[in-house]
């Protein structure tokens, strides 16, 4: 048979190119476009090069927001991943309670994000909120609108309540996929509950936990709606995370150039850290041990 050659095959990948172009490349390039030009109006633009990047990078308020963001995402991962795994381990393996548990856990995931903020505003109000009033009644002067620490505690509690269920669902799915024979073999080998966790459950959950870490890192690093509704970034700037600060620059001050430069840096940070997490989790326990 004669070999048939033609460049027509390119047409087959064209739809993907078009979709990716419109969904990612073109929007990203507009942001790049804004980040290197100062635009005053239609037809009035000056090329400024890396000036916006320099000014953004030397912005001390951005540094603060960035640190805040890292601390927040770090805490989220440190609390939500172990807590999610613990809850998944404690859940029943079969029977009617499984679906009751799963539905209850999934509820926070179904609520719109700004509604979550509203729920927690009411829940933590010192005068009428169930949580706020109760804790004030116990003699603790809790007020997230006035005290930075209380604001942080509230935002963290809200975040944990909102997103730990996702980790639980992923970890539970991972646990359920372990064949029964592993537990039977471990029983015969005389393994303790800790050994079963350490050598069977944890290694078998690596895949889903990688996904959980990545999702929780990315989502928490991008967090906007819930703290914006709950604290508006305050008191002061104490809960102003990167997204909130970015919106303040872009919408509040209408500085589109610096905001665009900021967006690109923001995107690169997330990309870099997601890559690092992924690499680290893929390689954990892979090395040949002697």
């Amino acid at each position: 048979m004669e070999k048939w050659e033609s460049n027509k095959a390119w047409f087959l990948v064209l739809p993907v190119f078009v979709i990716v172009a419109f969904s990612a490349i073109i929007p990203l390039m507009t942001v790049v476009n804004y980040s290197v030009q100062d635009i005053f109006g239609p037809g009035q633009r000056i090329f400024v090069g890396t000036e916006f990047f320099k000014s953004v990078l030397s912005d001390s308020r951005l540094h603060e927001a960035l640190w805040r963001q890292f601390i927040f995402s770090g805490l989220v991962l440190l609390i939500e991943i172990p807590l999610g795994v613990l809850i998944a381990l404690a859940m029943p393996k079969k029977g009617g309670w499984v679906s009751v548990n799963l539905v209850t856990l999934a509820l926070p995931l179904l609520i719109p994000w700004n509604v979550i903020g509203t729920i927690w505003i009411i829940f933590t109000r010192p005068d009428i909120g169930l949580f706020g009033a109760a804790i004030n009644g116990l003699g603790v002067a809790f007020d997230h609108t006035a005290k930075p620490l209380d604001a942080w505690i509230t935002v963290m509690l809200m975040e944990i309540w909102h997103w730990t269920p996702l980790v639980v669902l992923l970890a539970y799915a991972g646990l359920r996929s372990i064949p029964e024979a592993y537990y039977q073999a471990a029983k015969i080998d005389g393994a303790s509950a800790w050994a079963i966790f350490r050598y069977i459950q944890l290694p078998k959950m690596r895949g889903v936990l990688t996904i959980a870490v990545l999702l929780r890192f990315m989502d928490s690093f991008l967090i906007y709606a819930e703290p914006f509704v709950l604290t508006g970034g305050g008191p002061g700037n104490s809960t102003t995370f990167l997204s909130i600060y970015l919106v303040k620059i872009a919408v509040g001050q209408f500085d589109l150039g610096p905001a665009a430069a900021f967006s690109i840096i923001y995107f690169l940070i997330i990309l870099l850290f997601s890559f690092l997490f992924y690499q680290a989790l893929q390689n954990v326990g892979k090395g040949e041990k002697v």
Binding site: P179, A181, Y182, Q184, A185, I188, Y199, I200, P203, K204, G285, E288, K289, V290
Partner: peptide, 13 residues
């Protein structure tokens, strides 16, 4: 007991 599918502790040598 030896099972139908090999049961191993993957992370161990």
């Amino acid at each position: 007991q030896v099972f139908q599918f090999p049961v191993l502790y993957d992370t161990m040598s």
